[in-house]
Design a protein around this nucleic acid. Structure first.
Lengths: 186, 186
DNA sequence: GAAGATTGAGAGCTCAATCTTG
DNA sequence: CAAGATTGAGCTCTCAATCTTC
């Protein structure tokens, strides 16, 4: 059998995955205190920073790496929890908005500092400013190479935890949506 | 609300996730030609490079970031497909081995070069040797910081695609298992 | 007829409970 | 009674089909 079982590229790819897994696990633990799953956190955060604190279902689906139906059900749960509300689009009656409720806003506002604190602890605690910058730059090149959908419409606006991978992404619009911010699995 | 919505750490974390997602999607597409899901690929590869081409269920579960029951069912499917076979452990009759069958070996041998080729295309195509080394080193530090379970018993032996994050890892033994090689979610 | 969103069916995963063996 | 592995219940995801609106 191929002796390539220890190929250095396998090592690099493995580290990439393990780093994301570990980081996601830590962030998830932090979020638990605020009774937010990584998925909920990701959705609420995206809504929070969108104009009118609202986003079309299709746009949100693309940004969360969820299928259209997957997002429908996720919003069902968030709506049942009172954190998000659906509103139909005036200009296109087919469309629907997911809108942050005041409760939803309160929850994300409370959780965000904790989340950022965890991120700072990891990044600032283990890298010099220069190293962090270098890592970001190297990752951006890799991302641009393998995930053009996330790259295309972007200025510096990515995000957060982890997610399920697929050819997903620009399911709907096929163009815009830069800000990815995928969820932290599970 | 916090203006931290554009904090640079969110960008770095987001790039990390998007890079993994994109890479996983590409690898998954390559594997499809060999009718192997990322999960199957990961399991077969680990078995292929283990002594006797076999691994205990618990060890395999830890390495794949799957729960014990999740792995039981995954092996059920692989066994049904004829790629893996169960064998009971002589020294501890509670234990079970998952053993690669000749068919399983043939499948992984056929798929591995393709997988490595895809990895080379991405890494060698977009980084200089020095950059790749730098990235690997930076990722290793991050992984060690956030995923000590994967780090602890390791020499250079990581791997591949993506996975589901949790506090998983050393579910069983609590110590060894270095080689992680998580799956590329689906 | 295509696009946006939802619903139904099927697959996979986790948690908790169970069975067997040390 | 702890450890290794499996089984049952429940949840969430995806794919395909459907409904409404452009």
């Amino acid at each position: 059998m191929p002796a390539d079982l220890d190929h250095p590229h396998l090592t690099t790819a493995g580290l990439l995955v393990e780093a994301v897994d570990g980081l996601s696990a830590q962030l998830e633990a932090q979020l638990e205190a605020h009774r937010l799953s990584p998925q909920w956190f990701g959705i609420l955060l995206r809504l929070a920073r969108s104009p009118g604190q609202r986003l079309r279902m299709a746009a949100l689906a693309a940004q969360t790496t969820l299928s259209a139906s997957g997002l429908t059900r996720a919003i069902d749960r968030l709506e049942a929890a009172g954190l998000v509300q659906r509103e139909s689009c005036p200009s296109d009656r087919r469309g629907a908005f997911a809108v942050l409720t005041p409760e939803g806003e309160a929850r994300i506002d409370a959780a965000l500092p904790v989340h950022l604190g965890a991120l700072e602890a990891v990044f600032d605690g283990h890298y010099s400013p220069g190293e962090l910058e270098a890592l970001t730059e190297l990752l951006r090149r890799l991302r641009d190479a393998v995930n053009p959908a996330a790259a295309c419409a972007s200025d510096p606006e990515e995000d957060d935890a982890r997610s399920a991978a697929q050819g997903a992404a620009d399911t709907s619009t096929g163009i815009p949506l830069s800000t990815a911010l995928p969820d932290t699995g599970s």
